[in-house]
Amino acid sequence: MNFRKYLFILIPYSWLVALFLVPFIIVVKMSLSDGVMAIPPYTPYLTLTEGWAGITNFFTNLDFENFIFLTEDNLYWIAYLSSLKIAAISTVITLLVGYPIAYGMANASNEWRPTLIMLVILPFWTSFLIRIYSWMGILSQEGFLNQFLLWLGIIDQPLTLLNTNIAVYIGIVYTYLPFMILPIYASLEKLDLSLLEAAKDLGCNRTQSFWLVTVPLSKAGIIAGCFLVFIPVIGEFVIPSLLGGADTLMIGTILWQEFFANRDWPVASAVAVILLLILMVPIILFQRSEQKQREAE
């Protein structure tokens, strides 16, 4: 019985070790190697045929050169910082856009709610790429937004929106909005309405009871929504590469360029390792807050 149980565990376990853990170790190893002009463009190789000499030779060839290179070149620091900045600003905007929608959904009548939830989830099933593409037609120089604003007479010159940071923010808010709405809606739905009545009885007007009762009680949803947007946006590639411009620096696109355009695999790996180290911070904070939430319930 026990033997069979371990055999059953072994199948997915070895799959994950082979296709997740081992590749990850290879990236770390690669980040410590030197770039050479060859295919594959890196040394050193671990050659087990040379025995112990091969292994020691392998380890003496590893160094932190790529990481030192990253710290010396300003581009990378700016890209990491700018990824964090873009992620933070777009998280705040997504919260400001998403909260009223979640609030409206939670206050909708019971027969409407399943439909509204489905309408929020539906875009999530449609291709990410297509949703980004749809904004290219809206934001371009001759795009629909410019046509509309010109027609209204608000502007007399078309605005440059596509290939700027503004377009990146719009794209992020648009694609990540369901991740913000759903957790906030879940926490607002659980809200005990008698607490709002109590606040009213105690002399709160509607605005006060919103800020003093509703918002604090939906804190769990707000925190979860913010992490669910912030964490994936840091490593985002598609949005900055299609909607962003020359001044949009995000680490996902830098990694892509290092790998595909510059073919510098060791540097691309070092960029990936540092990106992961940066991501560890919000991921651990998120796990802690989730755990606290579970204990509170």
Binding site: P100, I101, A108, L119, P123, L177
Partner: peptide, 27 residues
């Protein structure tokens, strides 16, 4: 409390317009 106030109606309308208009234009 469970009622459609003007605020809720507007936020839902604008929110879903934001989510769906780009795809409608595309189609």
């Amino acid at each position: 409390m469970k009622r459609f106030t003007w605020f809720n109606t507007i936020s839902l309308t604008l929110g879903f317009a934001f989510l769906y208009i780009p795809m409608l234009i595309l189609i």
